[in-house]
């Protein structure tokens, strides 16, 4: 119809505006020094990776990157196991006190992590977890586990009860049923959990800023905060740092797009 061009024009404009900040950042990170005077929306004429090399090596971003990868990967893998295990008990097992556990976890959906950092810091300190990656990982898991338990439970509830009962009659233990029967058919929920927890962990600043004060332990988020605090004028450094942070996430997003969008819609309560 005649309105089609208008709709496409509008959508293209909005999409461009939404991507513009990232595109300009990418352009600028690739510009050699003499091209920095050109407007940020002009692509680089002679692209160079020299700023990436400088940021990666001299500004210690290789260490930050590795720390981020370690924390986020462990977060994602452990979250899959503990959230699915708890969801299994809540969905398939009968035990006294179940409503209490539900209520407790429901409260967890409402806790804003920002508001509890002071006692959390003291807890980490008492347990000797400050300046350890373990301390960050345990807090990450604890703060996000309720949402993933509910996400997994919602998935498990759609699995026919007969499937589990049949396996139990055949003599399988609960652990075997969980590991061999339920988990293998729960791939979508597992992928969503892993992706979302990885993303949240990768992007978090506050807990890492508080718990990791040694430079060699810091993640990309903290590294970026301090880098921009000291190198305010180093546009090439800042834009390449932002790209180092953004590129892995964008790649993962493009591969698992559907899971991301669905998962974030479900997990938006966080």
């Amino acid at each position: 119809m005649s309105r089609k061009p208008l709709v496409y024009g509008l959508l293209t404009l909005v999409s461009l505006l939404m991507l513009a900040p990232l595109l300009m950042t990418a352009f600028t990170s690739l510009k050699p020094a003499e091209e920095l005077v050109s407007p940020p929306w002009v692509p680089p004429l002679a692209p160079t990776f020299e700023h990436f090399v400088t940021t990666w090596i001299d500004a210690n971003f290789n260490t930050y990157f590795l720390n981020s990868v370690i924390i986020s990967t462990v977060d994602a893998l452990v979250m899959i196991v503990i959230a699915s295990a708890a969801a299994y008990a809540l969905t398939f097992l009968k035990f006294p006190g179940k409503p209490l556990i539900y209520a407790l976890l429901l409260a967890g959906l409402m806790i804003p992590p920002t508001a509890i950092i002071l006692p959390l810091y003291v807890t980490e300190q008492r347990l000797g977890l400050l300046n350890t990656h373990l301390g960050v990982i345990l807090a990450d898991l604890a703060l996000a586990v309720p949402i993933f338990i509910f996400l997994m439970s919602a998935y498990f509830r759609r699995i026919p009860k007969e499937l589990r009962d049949a396996a139990r009659v055949d003599g399988a233990s609960e652990i075997q049923v969980y590991w061999r029967v339920i988990l293998p058919i729960s791939t979508p929920a597992i992928i969503t959990t892993g992706l979302l927890e990885f993303l949240w962990s990768w992007n978090d600043l506050l807990l890492r800023l508080l718990f990791l004060t040694q430079d060699n332990l810091r993640t990309l988020t903290v590294g970026m905060l301090f880098f921009q605090g000291t190198q305010t004028r180093d546009i090439s450094g800042l834009t390449s740092a932002a790209m180092i942070m953004a590129i892995p996430i964008i790649i993962i997003f493009i591969i698992f797009q559907r899971h991301f969008v669905q998962g974030m819609t479900q997990g938006a309560v966080k």
Partner: peptide
């Protein structure tokens, strides 16, 4: 029943209590 359920629930609930729920009360 308690033991089996506890085994499945323990890691998640213990972490949640120590690093989320109790700090919230604190």
């Amino acid at each position: 029943a308690w033991l089996t359920a506890g085994l499945f629930l323990f890691p998640a609930i213990a972490l949640y209590l120590v690093f989320a729920f109790i700090p919230t009360l604190e």
